[in-house]
Computed example of a mutant assay.
Amino acid sequence: MLSVIEKVAPGTLRILRKRYDILNHIQQHGPIGRRALAKHLELTERTLRNEVEVLRNQGLITTSSQGMECTSVGLNIFYKLERLMGQQEHSREIEAQLAKVLGIHHCTIVLGNTDQEQNSLVELARVTVELIDRILPEGKSTIAVMGGTTMFEVAERMTERIGLHRELLFVPARGGLGESVDIQANVIAENMARVTGGKARALYAPEHVRLETYSLLLEEPEIKETLEIVENARLVLYSIGDSIEMAKRRGLDDATLHMLQEKEAVAEAFGEFVNPKGEIVYKLSRIGLRSSQLPSIENVVAVAGGKRKAKAIEAHMKTVPPHTWLVTDEAAANEILNGGNPLK
């Protein structure tokens, strides 16, 4: 709820927190004078005077020669606000807990289960776009983006705001995948560029190639130049897949599928199939960004949700640099932290 308010009215949370702190101190220590309260809160008397005036005009506090006190209305509002702020703090605690378990610096968790609820997938994408807007500086930036259904949804939630005061170049972080055109990285990069007023550059190469073809393609001038741009991106944006599902989408043969099952592969990203320990058990010869290049990229954002992807997320996070930012949902977080039981 608070994140929605902040999106509609930027700066609201800062004001809300300040006025909550004022009400909190007044209800604990009132009647209290303005000078003592300003010292308590480490605010200037001028700043406090303006805030007190707002609260008094709203009928939340009274002032007298003895000091300031909360009215009955003020106390009622304070207790409701306390619950709201507590929910926000609890959410942050859960996100910090998940980040610690996964060994990364940042996690953002949205409500719901993207396996079952389209609204949760939409929210996952919307929050990802919000995150991009928060972490990207003004000026020039290159964004390397993978393909897939989740990235398609992120592209659908892009807005003109992302391009405001920015000069953005979107590049596919992998070649084509022989799947629906709409979810290929080239098309997603193009769509993101169109919505944000940025530019896009295509990578005209298949993702999965035979080993003998791989080195030849890497010497093609246009492919080579595009891959250099990808390697120097400011942000890479991708999703995490279930290993068997992704193997089938890539058209791997039955023998390889059987091998992946025997080696307990649970996750796939960047053409790498990993087991629950984060060990790479199979790797494709592919054209595109490699996981070994992630540590040198300033912003790494992984987006994946749903209970069925919990094992994949947990395994893949063992392979990423610590500065990776995961955007996931409540169902995946519950499964990773608490075996699927509701978080407390």
Rank of each mutant, 00 (worst) to 15 (best):
I244W: 06
Y204L: 15
D242N: 14
V274T: 09
S120I: 04
A332L: 03
E228Q: 13
I229Y: 00
R46A: 10
N191D: 06
F270W: 07
A38Q: 01
I183H: 13
G197M: 01
L98F: 07
L43N: 08
M146N: 11
F270R: 04
E335V: 05
I244P: 03
K344W: 06
L177V: 03
Y20K: 06
N275P: 00
L326F: 13
G271T: 03
I240S: 02
Y282V: 01
E212Q: 11
I244M: 11
K344A: 11
E207N: 14
E123R: 13
V8S: 11
I94K: 07
V171C: 00
A255G: 08
P137T: 12
G74W: 03
N341R: 14
N76H: 05
E212R: 14
D253N: 14
K248W: 06
Q28G: 08
R157L: 12
E314T: 03
E95P: 03
S285A: 13
V195N: 00
S243K: 09
I5A: 09
L211G: 07
A202D: 04
R19T: 06
F152S: 13
R14C: 06
H165T: 09
N299G: 01
E225F: 02
T142R: 01
I5C: 09
G147E: 06
V320R: 12
E117C: 07
I143N: 00
N299P: 01
I32A: 06
S291H: 06
E6H: 06
E314R: 09
L121W: 09
A99S: 14
I32E: 10
Q118I: 15
I336Y: 04
I109T: 09
R19Y: 08
M1H: 10
K311N: 07
M85I: 15
I162Q: 01
T114H: 04
N57A: 10
G288T: 01
M192V: 02
L227W: 04
E219D: 10
E298P: 02
L84F: 05
I313S: 13
V181P: 10
R83S: 14
T108A: 11
Y214F: 15
S65D: 08
A144S: 12
R126L: 11
A267K: 14
I336K: 05
L102A: 08
T319C: 14
A193I: 01
